[in-house]
Each structure stands twice: as C-alpha cells, then as structure tokens.
Design a binder for these strands. Structure first.
Length: 554
RNA sequence: UGGGGCGUGGCCAAGCGGUAAGGCACCGGAUUUUGAUUCCGGCAUUCGCAGGUUCGAUCCCUGCCGCCCCAGCCA
C-alpha cells in the first residue's frame, strides 16, 4: 500500500494565488465557503468547500464558513447545523470564523444609506412587473424608472420608512443607480434591498427589509478580509457589480475567481430538485442513501476521505464538465479497500451439504479480517455440514471460463476447504434446491496434496450459524446520464434504485456497530445503517459493489 | 442576432513560445484462498476549424464553428 502523497495537480486558481503571493499583490490567503442555509449540502458543495479550505490550508491561510442568510423566507436553522456538521465531517475547520451575512445587516444598511447620499442608489416604486418590463431584454436596452431621479432627501426618507415597516411587501425597493442600458443585465439598476415582513432565523423580527445577495455577498467578503472569493461560473457576470459596490463604498477589495460547478452523471444537483425529491417522498429524506447529499452519502457508507479524494481527482476548471459517477464510486472503493474488514454473506442462497463432514460437528475456522493487513487480526468462522453459497456461483451447464461450481466441478470455499459438486438435487419443478458436495478435508490453508490447482473461490455461510438480516441494495437514483434531458427529470428516476432484500451473514456480523462498513467478500461493501439498525439486528446498506470483471464476459 | 465565459485522448485535467504531465476508464501480462486488491506494460506525431506571425505555436494574432451562463423584489 503506497503512502506516497497523491500528487497535487495544479489548477488555474492555484496559479493565480501563487503569482499574487510572489509579486506581493497579496500577502495572505483568506477564502470562505458561503452556503445559503436553505437545504442540505451535496457533493457539488463538497467540491467548492474542499477547494476553499484546501487552498487556505496549502497556502497557510484560513477559510471562513459564512452563511449567506439574506432571504429569511427560505432559510432555517436546521440547515445551518446540518451544514456545519457536513463540513466538519469532511474534516475541515473554520476555527473562530463562523459568520453570517446577517451579522452585517446593520453595516449593510449604513452602506445603503451612504450610497443614497452619494446619489448612487434610489427607491423605486414600480411594481415587480413594471420593473421587469423596463429592464429591457438581452438585446434591447432598458428604460429608466420614473422614480430614478428622486432627490437624496426623498430617497432617504422613503428608505427609512421602508425600514420602519411603513410599507407592505413589494411596494418599494432600493436600487443601485448604475446604467439601464448596460449590456450586462446585472448592471441595469440592480435591486439592493426589498421589503420582506418575515421572521429571520437569527435576527428575528428586527428587520422588515433585507439586502439582496448581490448587495451582501461582496461586502461580507470585504468585511472579513477575504482575499480570494471563489465562486461558481454563473456569478462571473455579477463580478462587475460587486466591484462597483466595493469601489463606490471605498472598502477592501477581495478578488473573485469563478470555477465550473460539478455535474455528476446519473444525478441531479439543484437544491430545488433535491428538495422536491424529499417533499414528494421519492426518497426517504435528505439522508436517503441514494441522494447526492453529504448526509446521504454518509449514511450510504461513503467515507469522507473518499469524497475528498474525489474532489481532488476531478480538478478545477472553467469548462462545463460532467464527471462520471463511476469516478466517485472508484474513490469509495479505493478508500474502503484499505480499511473495511472482510466478512462473508450470501445474498441469494443455495443449499450445499458436505457429504463427508459430520452432521453434528462445528468447526471454528480462522479467517483474517483483512488478508492484506494481517495486523488487523482474525475472526472465527463457523463451518458445518450444511452451508449456503450464492446461486450465482453455480451453473448447471457452465462455460469453460466459469471458474465456479458446476456438476463434477471443484471450487475452493473461501477460508475453508476445496469441495467438489457430486450431486444436484431438484424439487418437483425441476429447480435446483441443493448441491451435495464432497470436501477435501486436507485443504484447509493449503493446496491439494496431489498439487492440482483449483482456480475458483466462492464465499459461503454455515446454515445453522447464519443469521438472516435485511440488506438494502442501492443503485443510481436516475437511469439517465443527464436526468435534465428527460422531459421531466422525475421520469428519469431509476425504479430499481432501492431494493430491499435479505442476506445470510456470518454470526460475527451481528455485533456490527451502526456506521461501520464491511466488505462482503466477492460482493461489495456494506455499511450498517445508522437509522434503522437495532442492537443485534443490523440493517445493511450496500455502499458500492466490488468491481466485477467477470460480469463483463456474461 | 447584446454581454460574459469555455473548447487538450472515452471522462476529468496540467502545460501558457521550444517540440503533449497526471488521474479515471480501457487493453495486455504477472501475483493472488476475494474473477477484488496489488504490480508491471500499452494507450493524443497531436491540442475545435482555417489562416497568419515565428527558426519553432496547444501556447501570440485574425476569422470562423461549437457549447455554457445572464432579462428573480432567489442565491
């Protein structure tokens, strides 16, 4: 197992920062992760905050966690706590720097007044519809609001009344006075403050007007001394606006750098859609193991290290990119392979009796917890006359390349003996119900005395010692690479993304603690569900299957 | 057909004037009591296209073509 650190491939952001540091344009690196607390974090957010925290770490700076809570209608405390949890789960630490845009509401209000005084902002009293009409289109300039030239005094008075709650929602709005004919729509007198008689999760009922994200975000960065404000591509057009506010206000200027958000095949990433999946009960909740949310992945059994590896592996660029789900799954396997204890479990049982093994005898065989890491110890595996193997490991008329069991064929029982299929028993319908096999009792821990080779190895459990448990087989939530290409993304939901089944497990597995992951040898990685498991009655979530090159031949 | 971006192998992605890193995938082969893992080896005469500058261009210039984003009192 290599311990060499994964090579960090450069990216354009790293290059910019390095240059700034070398030329002295900047002398420190302060970044931030600015989620809106209106939903749970997903893997796309993980890419963003891994980048932000990672950069700060690599350059000896720091990264803040700031909640951009400027819209009280959509934001809740529940999400704040969940987001903090997720960021910590991935191993990042914001130290003292937990902030909220709402911490700056007073300052923001003062700045709005400053802009009004400077003649750079005005209260508009058009309706939302009128504003939309007057904004123009992508190719036609907008027209000035009839209220655009109100006097500073009038604006000041109106803005104060807005703050005092003298007006109902939607009647007035504070706008920046920039240029209604700008080719950049964001500069056509954008809204700064809207009236919202709503309860805020932190400021309560103190305010009845709230700043727009665009009027809060850049200043929040400025207040915190953020040197690099890293965000996604869709805010590229907003940068001139943020820079305008910063310049007019005469405050510290962070540098915004945009990168492409993550798109993962077979999943959707918009919070609106994830919320709908939850609300419509298409999934069991934000933490449904099929969700691309961090809580979902955690419950599914994805280790945080795997997600960090994934975020590094996919890189950072500016081109819209689609990452195949298999890349994430491969990171999960890579991590789990190193640490997960090995166990045996049979999902689709077929009875096997060992004809030359005493009916009343039970042996306790030693089986390593991890064949590649002997220091992880062993566990006892009961072996007896009657076993179960997986139906997939038997074929009546197997092709040449099938290394498993078939009439007259030999196979190695994992961690036990080599057996030979002597007889196939069927029921009245002709279905195979039992295999009678002879075992070479001299093959425990060694090859046959005559030196012949047995290539196939299959897993099994002792019938009388096996315990039956629930296993949940998860697969991709959508069966279309890009669910948004369907008429409705809900139509692309994979009906087989969640299958409840049972498994016969070796007794050792009964002690499994919720949240721990095992490799069911030759099958996949399974994690004890943290919600539905009971002591002595674990429920297993299939985290990810093992790679299966044999499956390709079939 | 306004503005802002982006185009390097199947998927990501370095490189930023000196003759195409790396990862994943894929294909061989070795080891293996997991058809897993691990290990070796292979995998772009070419960087969206067409011109130009240069001794030399993926990197500079020009013109095309293609894709993404923007008309919330959302973020």
């Amino acid at each position: 197992m290599s311990t060499a650190p994964a090579p960090i491939t450069s990216n354009f952001i790293r290059t910019i920062i390095s240059e700034d540091l070398e030329t002295g344009r900047r002398d420190q690196v302060i970044t931030r992760f600015p989620p809106e607390p209106n939903g749970y974090l997903h893997i796309g957010h993980a890419k963003s905050f891994s980048l932000n925290f990672g950069l700060a770490e690599d350059f000896g700076g720091r990264c803040h966690l700031r909640f951009d809570d400027t819209n009280p209608i959509k934001e809740e405390d529940e999400y704040v706590e969940a987001i903090k949890d997720d960021v910590r789960w991935l191993g990042f630490d914001w130290g003292e720097h937990l902030h909220f845009a709402s911490d700056y509401f007073d300052q923001l209000y003062l700045w709005a007044v400053q802009l009004i005084n400077a003649g750079k902002a005005y209260v508009d009293s058009q309706s939302a519809e009128q504003m939309r009409e007057n904004r123009g289109t992508l190719t036609a300039a907008g027209v000035d609001s009839p209220f655009r030239n109100r006097t500073v005094e009038e604006n000041l008075e109106l803005f104060k009344q807005m703050k005092n709650g003298d007006f109902p929602d939607g009647t007035h709005i504070l706008r920046a006075k920039i240029d209604m004919s700008s080719p950049n729509m964001n500069l056509r007198d954008p809204a700064m403050y809207r009236i919202l008689h709503a309860h805020h999760h932190r400021t309560g009922d103190k305010w009845c007007l709230y700043p727009m994200y665009d009027f809060a975000h850049g200043q929040g960065d400025s207040i915190e001394g953020v040197t690099y404000s890293i965000c996604t591509l869709e805010f590229e057009d907003h940068r001139p606006l943020y820079d305008w506010f910063i310049k007019e206000l005469g405050i510290f200027a962070p540098q915004q750098i945009e990168f492409a958000r993550l798109n993962l095949s077979y999943t959707v990433m918009s919070k609106r859609k994830l919320l709908q999946l939850v609300n419509d009960k298409r999934v069991s909740g934000w933490d449904d193991p099929r969700m691309p949310t961090l809580v979902g992945m955690r419950r599914r059994g994805y280790p945080p290290e795997a997600i960090r590896t994934f975020c590094e592996r996919i890189g950072v660029g500016k081109g819209a990119s689609w990452i195949d789900l298999s890349v994430l799954e491969e990171c999960v396997r890579e991590q789990l392979n190193k640490s997960a204890f090995r166990r045996q479990a049979v999902l689709n049982p077929l009875k096997v009796s060992i004809t030359n093994y005493p009916v009343d005898k039970t042996a306790e065989l030693d089986a390593p917890n991890h064949p590649q890491q002997p220091d992880l110890g062993i566990r006892k595996l009961p072996f007896s006359h009657e076993l179960y193997i997986d139906r997939d490991d038997f074929m009546e008329d197997p092709p040449k390349k099938f290394f498993r069991l078939g009439p007259g064929r030999e196979v190695r029982l994992r961690n036990a003996y080599i057996i030979k299929c002597e007889e196939v028993i069927r029921d009245e319908n002709g279905e195979v119900v039992e295999l009678r096999c002879s075992a070479d009792l001299d093959t425990l821990g060694k090859n046959p005395a005559d030196g012949h080779k047995v290539k196939g190895i299959i897993h099994w459990v002792s019938a009388q010692h096996a315990e039956k448990v629930e296993v949940r087989l998860y697969d991709r939530l959508f069966n279309q690479e890009n669910p948004d290409k369907a008429k409705n993304y809900l139509d692309a939901i994979n009906p087989d993304s969640f299958i409840t089944s049972t498994a016969l497990i070796e007794p050792e597995l009964l002690k499994a603690e919720p949240g721990t992951t095992f490799q069911f040898e030759r099958v996949g990685y399974f994690t004890v569900d943290t919600k539905d498991s009971k002591p002595g009655k674990p429920v297993f979530n299939r985290t990810v299957t093992l790679r299966d090159t044999w499956a390709k031949f079939k």
